[in-house]
Each structure stands twice: as structure tokens, then as C-alpha cells.
Design a binder for these strands. Sequence first.
DNA 1: AAGCAAACCGACCGTCCGGTCTGTTAGGAA
DNA 2: TTCCTAACAGACCGGACGGTCGGTTTGCTT
Lengths: 200, 200
Amino acid sequence: MAQMTIDTPTRSEMTEARIIAAARRLFVTRNYADVTTGMITEEAGVTKGGLYHHFPSKERLYVTMMLRDLEGKRRMFSRAVEMEGTCRERLARITRDFLELPEEDRELTRLVRRDINIFTDPERDKLVRAYQRALPDLIERIVTDGIAHGELRPGNPRILSWSFVALVEVVIGEYAREALGDSDARLGHVLDLFFHGAAA
Amino acid sequence: MAQMTIDTPTRSEMTEARIIAAARRLFVTRNYADVTTGMITEEAGVTKGGLYHHFPSKERLYVTMMLRDLEGKRRMFSRAVEMEGTCRERLARITRDFLELPEEDRELTRLVRRDINIFTDPERDKLVRAYQRALPDLIERIVTDGIAHGELRPGNPRILSWSFVALVEVVIGEYAREALGDSDARLGHVLDLFFHGAAA
DNA sequence: AAGCAAACCGACCGTCCGGTCTGTTAGGAA
DNA sequence: TTCCTAACAGACCGGACGGTCGGTTTGCTT
């Protein structure tokens, strides 16, 4: 019973995974409202009946998919928080982890901020909290340590971590890759700008 | 004929303005798909017939509303570009102009980035270009001057201007107001972070 | 006052979409 | 093999939404 989750998945688990994977692919490229359940079932190779056997509604499917992804990201990014090293080294680690994610996984992070307003408060709150736990909270802990150790100027750690996330988001996308180069170059740019600013 | 636009507006122009104002109010708070034409007509005090007499579709209404707003912003922000002074002073001016805008006007700027993916390329391109002209292009010109005059380190001006916009967006919203204080404090925070970074 | 075009009304239509429901199939237990 | 439940199929429904269209009002011209 306890080990059932680690051996071969059941048929039910496999179709559920197929549905979630299809939903991920579609929600990344199109708006929530523009992704129909018909598109999801077609992409997943099931029918309406199959989908609604596993998920009670389109909204729950979306939320489940997102929460599962964010929990995975949280576990991954937590390694950078628990790592030894300077504030800059730890921020570099978490940013590199993020930049080297597959594009679909990166884009998914933007969905939370994009679609957060279309849900009402029981589900909305879950999504916000899961996102906070997965990324901003972790960065905030690194930033707080940085301030405590004198590496960063005193200031509001939450605002600083949001600022850092915002700077990272800038170097995602096609133009930044052309202008700055590979992951290392973009990573260096973000860190230099965040730590030392743009002044000469 | 040529001066007709500056004296008392016609009935047609007034209802058109009412419709656009209603659409603005609604689109800021709700998703594009979640704002129905019925809600717009109710808010504007007209009926479906009235709305579709002035606009051929919901999409065109949205685009017209947005383009009109962005053109106004472009004219306003252009004053900071044409102003004399250091790079920091000019960036301060444009940022202050932005921060002191009514909340609805500020939020509207975020709509472009939020809803840009739901339109297809003839209209989508118009929106992107109008937004570029209204804000990032102007900041890029200031940043380019700053690099030329030795105030900023050499670097890609477009990436830098996007970074600046991203930092400004962080200090919008309720939490930043509580944590940092009034417009002046938030403005100072953004400028300090952009010019000198967060390092001690 | 008559005429006329623009402005506006609001019932209506076609479509589409989330969700339901009845039925069928697979697959393990006995 | 038998049987029973979970898994899935797919036709169908209710409703909402964008857009239409024939008719009515408004206000300017002559």
C-alpha cells in the first residue's frame, strides 16, 4: 500500500498523467478560456468521459496540474537554499536551475501570474501560496541570509527577492538569448545587475 | 471641419467615449474572455445595437481602447525623454509620472502584457508596437544616452530598459506601498537598485 | 414641417463549451 | 470462468456569449 506509488503505475495513474501532460502543453500556449476540454481530451487521447472520471471540473484539472508542478519545482529549488556558499553563489545556483529548465517548465511559472485572477478565493489562494513556496520564498531566504551576513545592503527582503525574480524574467525569451548569449552569459548579467547595478 | 475635434463633441463621440471608458474599467479588473459585451453595454448605458454601431467587434473595441490609451501615455512620457538632465533625473521623471498615474491607468499597462497572446498577428502586432512606443522605447533612449555620456556601464540598452521597467513593476501594488512608503520612497528604491545594485 | 440619415434599441440566432448520463469495456478477485 | 467494480466512451443538454437585424428615435438640414 505504502509502496504502491513507487512501483509500476496503474492504468488510472497513467491516463491521469497523460491528461495532465496534455493540459500542461495546451495551457502554456493558450489562454485558460481558450483551451477547451475537447482540446485536452484530443491531445491526451481520451474522451470527455475519461477526463471527467479523473477530474471533477476543468478548473480542478488546472489547479491540480499547477500544484503538482509547483511542488516539484519547490523541491528542486530547495537544494540551492540548503546549499553552503555566499549569497551570490546560492542565487546563481537557483537561477541556473531555473534557466536550464525545459521551456515548457519555465513558461508554466509565468502562467500562475497570468491566470491568477480568473479563479476565486479557495483555489486562487492555493495557487498563490504554492507559487510563493516554490520560488519567491526560497529566494527571500537567501536574500535574508545575504543581508544578515553583510553581503547585501539592509532592505526589505521580500521586495528584493521579487526584484530579483523580475530581473531573471527579463533574460528569458528569444531576444535576450540573441543579445546576451547562453545561460552563463545571461546568468552573469542578472547577477551583476542585481548586485552592482548599471551605473558606471 | 479641421477644428471639429476640439469643440463640443458630437453625440456619437460621447457615447463612443462612454463605451471605451466602460470597457477600460471592466477589462482592468477581469479577463478579456470574462468581460461580456452585455457587461460593457450595461456599464456604458447603451445596448448591444449601440455598441455594435460604433465598433465592429469586441476585439476591435479592445484594441481601439488600448491603442488610444497607449498613444496618450506615449505623449505624456515623451516629455521625460526630451527633458534636459542626467540619465538618473530623466528616469526619475518618467518613473514618477508613471507611479503617480491613477491606478486604472497603471493597471492598463499590465493588460498589454497579460492579454497579448489572445490576439492574432494583425492586431497583436499593433498592440505590441504601440506598447513599445509608449514605454520601453522611451526608456531605451534615455538609457542609450546614459551609456553614451558614461553614466551607465556599456551594455545592451534594450535589455537594460526592460530590466528597469521590471523593477518599476515590482514597486507597484499594495505590499510595496506598505513596505517602502509613498511614491518618493519607492522611486528612490528603484533608482538606487537600478544604478548601484543591492550589494553592501 | 417634412424628410432623411445617423444613432440607437432589444429580441433573436447560431455556435460553442463545460458538464452529465447512460452505456460499454477492461481487468483483477474469487 | 464468473462477476463485479473501476475505467472509459460519446451522444447529449443547458446555458451563455458574440454578433445580427428589422424597427424606432433623435436631431440636423432644407
